[in-house]
Amino acid sequence: MIATIARREYANLFLSPLAWTLLGVVQIILSWIFMAQIDNFLLLRPQLMQLENQPGVTDIVIAPVFSLAAIILLMVMPLITMRSLAEEKRSGSIQLLLSAPLTLTQLVLGKFGGLLLFVITLASLLMLMPLSLLLGTGLDLGKLASIWLAMILLLGAFSAIGLYLSSLTANSTIAAVGSFGVLLMLWILEWGSDNPVIRYLSMLNHHRSMLEGVFDSADAVYFLLVIFLFLGLTVRQLDSERLPR
């Protein structure tokens, strides 16, 4: 049941030109950054050679690209998630799901599953750029896997937040603006604060440490917590709309 909804959600994303356009735009921008980063690396190489424990191409080229990708996708993901539930509510097609023999949890997990499939597609497409370097040089594949996983966890959290905002309204534009606001807030949270709790809440903070190749389970747990929290809130929201007030 969850898989049925997830497949539909994933396919629906590609029925409109929006997902294609966003994939294309993100890919073009990031490949430009990627190229600039490689130029940088070639420029710096003589100096790097003299270092004792020299950082590899993975650290110098790939990590910064994905760090920037996180920021670009922070702006893009709300556009992907905005229609998920809001559009169903606007058109009334959500009644099909609500009257079908499935629980709200299955419904929300299905919706999230579809978004997650999109996120995995997106992360894997972006991964193709660094992998192309394998043609000319060696790469730290473990680090690369960690970067890929970090991307999926981060975008998964973005999706869960976007899904929740999308469940709050029947207007997809409001859902997009709302989730962009929340994501931006979670990002800039660490500015001007030394409070460890607030620093812990900051999303990009966790993403950054994963990019450095330190796959700390605490960071992964943070993202999973965010995902489960917002999926839970979404179920609650849908349920409260059924209940009498």
Partner: peptide
């Protein structure tokens, strides 16, 4: 339902 729950793009 009153408004058929359809997906126009399918």
């Amino acid at each position: 339902p009153e408004n058929p729950p359809l997906y126009r793009e399918l």
